[in-house]
Structures are given as structure tokens and as C-alpha cells.
């Protein structure tokens, strides 16, 4: 409980930074104006540009962190992340095809296609989890699905008629929450809420999987349904995250590891802290993307990989001792 409170405070602080920092620096009087005078320029910068952007980063980071924690529990594998079963890749494929076909101008088309790709992958995976009980075969299938979707995305590049569309797809694949407003966030609310609820429901099953599939099968819990709920929840969250921000790596892998030692490695108690740490991480990563003075604003996926990889290596080094056995 103390951990949850601390992580909420950290997320709050990150969101505050997300509001305060940006390309335009605001003076104290402008800040006062932003909080007191609706529709003034500083008010619009804060509440129409920075706030939706920071909140989007928090939602995406939270979804990826939770989805990563569920995947790690489901597959009993500390290296699992939201992408391991191919859900991110199929979501990215959906979005890429839509952009390449020139349908990106239609409101919500890219986001809808990304979510549809993820849901499709989730349905296939749910059927498979019912058939394959051991995590290894599921991972192998996920790798195949991921490779297939990656190849199809490469094909989109290959066949794309205009270089403009190609660069648009590429830029989308790098991940970003720039220029998001509240209306972009609204359609993601339902899949995120449903995904989180399914993940929360599967928590007991994830914990039971610690002792392997057979012990879990005899535990008295409805393991078939709980595993399906975990896969569906993780797929919905990943799909919603990709729809909102493109492909953002490392958060789903690293967020659970940042908090793992404080929940004594318990897959069920890991879920909420992973969501919160993922949210805080991504808001901070987005602040970095904004304030690092580069000619072209840094892409969020680039920042998470650049900062996330060394951080993850450090955490793994510390945790390595507890993974043996």
C-alpha cells in the first residue's frame, strides 16, 4: 500500500513536470494566468496542449506497464513484454496499412486500425492459450506472429506508392504523444478500462501460475478463463497504447522490473505498481523528448529505448541474483 502511495506521488510529480516544462517557458505571472484566466494564451498552452499530452503519456505508459506485468506473469518469464506475443506488431501493421492507403486523414482511422489489429491478434492468442498450456509454445507462436506482422509492415514500406506516406508510417512507428488533444484520448478510455479490468480479474491466476500449469490447473481456480482474460486484457491495453502513441518500446518490459523487488516478486501484487511506474516513466520520457533541444523533436520511442535500455540493464544486474533456480 505504501508503495502504491509513493508511486502515485511520483506520477503526480511527473505530471506536474509535464505541465510546467515545454518548448515555451512560462513566467510566474503567465503561470498564474494559466490557472486563473480561462482562454488566455498560457491557459491554452497548459490545458489544451501540455495537459492532454502528459495525460496521454500517462495512460499509454500505464497500459504498457500493466500489460507487461501480465505478460511476465502469464508466461512466467522476466523477459516478456507487451510485444512478445506479437500484439504490438499486429497493431502497428494495422496502423501502417491505413496510413499507406492514404486513409490517415479520416478521424480515428489509424487508431481504430491499430486497435483492430491488436484485438485480432488477441483473439488468435486466446484460442491458442486454450489449446497450449505451456508458456514456451505460446512464446514461440508469439515470435512467429510478431515476425509475420513485421514482415507485412516491411511489405507496406516496399509497396508504398509515395515517399510521404512511407515517412509518415516510419514516424508513427517511432512513437509519439505530441499534438494529442482530449478528443484523441476519449476513444481509448473504453479499451483501456476493459483491459485493466480483465487484467485485474486474472491476477489470482497469474499468481497461481508461479508453481506451473499443472499445479494451477488443480488449484480450483478457473484457470482457462483467467488465462484468457489475462491475454485479452493485455492485448486490449497494448492495442490502445499503440493506437494512442505508436510503438513505444521498453516501458512494458522495464516498468514491472522497477517495482518487482518491493512486491516480493508476486505476479498479482505486481500489477498496480507496474501500471503506475510505467505511467510515471513515460510522462518523464515525454518531458525529456520535449526539453532536449534538438532540431527535430525527439520521438518518444527513441527516448524510452535510449534511456530505458541502460536503466533496464542496471535493474536486471541487481535483480539477477533472484532469477536463478
Amino acid at each position: 500500500m505504501r508503495l502504491i502511495v509513493l508511486l502515485c506521488l511520483a506520477l503526480g510529480a511527473a505530471l506536474w513536470l509535464g505541465l510546467m516544462l515545454g518548448e515555451t517557458s512560462l513566467t510566474v505571472s503567465q503561470l498564474v494566468e494559466a490557472f486563473t484566466r480561462p482562454d488566455s494564451a498560457p491557459w491554452r498552452i497548459l490545458w489544451s496542449i501540455r495537459a492532454p499530452r502528459a495525460v496521454t503519456a500517462a495512460v499509454v505508459g500505464g497500459a504498457l506497464g500493466l500489460s507487461g506485468a501480465v505478460m511476465q506473469g502469464l508466461l512466467r518469464n522476466p523477459l516478456a513484454d507487451p510485444g512478445v506475443l506479437g500484439v504490438s506488431a499486429t497493431a502497428a501493421l494495422g496502423a501502417s496499412v491505413t496510413i499507406a492507403l492514404g486513409l490517415a486523414t479520416a478521424a480515428g482511422a489509424v487508431e481504430g486500425a491499430a486497435l483492430a489489429g491488436a484485438i485480432l491478434a488477441g483473439l488468435v492468442l486466446m484460442v491458442l492459450t486454450a489449446r497450449l498450456s505451456d508458456p514456451q509454445s505460446l512464446i514461440l507462436f508469439g515470435v512467429a506472429l510478431s515476425a509475420l506482422a513485421g514482415a507485412a509492415t516491411a511489405l507496406v514500406f516496399n509497396l508504398s506508392p509515395s515517399p510521404v506516406a512511407t515517412s509518415e508510417v516510419l514516424s508513427w512507428l517511432l512513437g509519439s504523444v505530441a499534438n494529442r488533444d482530449w478528443s484523441d484520448l476519449a476513444p481509448a478510455a473504453a479499451p483501456v478500462a476493459l483491459g485493466a479490468a480483465l487484467c485485474a480479474w486474472s491476477a489470482n491466476g497469474l499468481r497461481m501460475l508461479t508453481l506451473g500449469e499443472e499445479t494451477a490447473a488443480l488449484s480450483g481456480l478457473p484457470m482457462g478463463r483467467l488465462r484468457a482474460a489475462g491475454v485479452a486484457g493485455a492485448a486490449l491495453l497494448t492495442g490502445a497504447a499503440v493506437a494512442l502513441a505508436g510503438v513505444v518500446g521498453f516501458v512494458g518490459l522495464a516498468a514491472p522490473h522497477l517495482v518487482r523487488r518491493w512486491v516480493s516478486d508476486d505476479p498479482a501484487r505486481l500489477l498496480a505498481p507496474s501500471a503506475l511506474s510505467g505511467a510515471a516513466l513515460l510522462v518523464l520520457a515525454d518531458v525529456c523528448a520535449r526539453v532536449v533541444p534538438t532540431a527535430e523533436e525527439l520521438k518518444l520511442g527513441v527516448v524510452t529505448a535510449l534511456f530505458g535500455a541502460p536503466l533496464f540493464a542496471l535493474v536486471s544486474w541487481r535483480a539477477a541474483r533472484s532469477w536463478r533456480g
Binding site: 512466467r76 489470482n204 499468481r207 497461481m208 501460475l209 508461479t210 508453481l211 506451473g212 499445479t215 488449484s219 480450483g220 481456480l221 516480493s264 516478486d265 508476486d266 505476479p267 533472484s322 532469477w323 533456480g325
Partner: peptide, 18 residues
């Protein structure tokens, strides 16, 4: 094989999942 490094009492608690 055990997937995660849970403390012993939490492993035993898996026998009472409800």
C-alpha cells in the same frame, strides 16, 4: 521449478487460492 522468488509463506498460501 518455481517461476518467481516468492517468500515461502506466500508459496504455501497458493494452496489456499480462494
Amino acid at each position: 521449478r518455481v517461476g518467481w522468488n516468492l517468500p515461502a509463506w506466500r508459496i504455501v498460501a497458493l494452496g489456499l487460492p480462494l
